[in-house]
Design a protein around this nucleic acid. Structure first.
Lengths: 100, 100
DNA sequence: ATTATATATCGAGAAATATCGATATGTTTA
DNA sequence: TAAACATATCGATATTTCTCGATATATAAT
């Protein structure tokens, strides 16, 4: 868990927004028909639609969030679902609290 | 208080380190002779010495932290002292907690 | 007034990030 | 097997960040 890498991932408005969308998926998305609820998270296409940025940019942003271990990706069929990585998030908030 | 701007300020190892130094100044510095204790914070020169980076870089980094409202600067005589801005820090941690 | 000290600002080059369109890869369907 | 679909990767350009040395500014000491 690298604090600066995580902070860097969160230093972009869209990526921070994506994290909020993934935290409260039912407030921002309709569930994907293929899977029940948001157990696995939200698929790239829905995040892409909401963002207004290109598909490649969103895919790249999700890889940055994943590289910072802020999200967990699960591939099911054609889709990749992303959800928050609660463990990293908790550790990050605790580490920040003792550092700043 | 801009979350992404603050995250960006904290996305650099040296700047994060500086924030920790300022949080626990007596663990990292000897008090400045000119003022009692660390009420006002720590002067640029001492931060500079500890950092290993150039004076101009540290001054610039402190201005980035100040621009993010993470620190408060006080000029006394020839020296500028920097200390954590507890209000911003608290609000930032709360905002992060509800966003990620 | 001049010099010394502490800090801030300027200008510049290198490195990293943002963002796109095009293309590749993996999966499902016809 | 071929076409369609979802996502990832590639290559490119524009913008931002990193970091320095040089210089400017503000204050204090001689």
């Amino acid at each position: 868990m690298e604090i600066t890498k995580i902070s860097s991932a969160l230093s972009n408005k869209t990526r921070l927004e994506v994290m909020r969308w993934l935290k409260y998926p039912d407030q921002y998305f309709t569930p994907h028909v293929e899977v029940e609820g948001f157990e696995m998270g939200v698929c790239v296409g829905k995040i892409h639609e909401k963002s207004g940025l290109s598909q490649s940019t969103i895919s790249h942003y999700l890889s940055i969030l994943q590289n910072a271990e802020l999200v967990i990706a699960t591939r099911i069929g054609k889709w990749t679902y992303y959800k928050p990585n609660e463990i990293t998030i908790k550790n990050y908030l605790m580490a920040l609290k003792s550092n700043i």
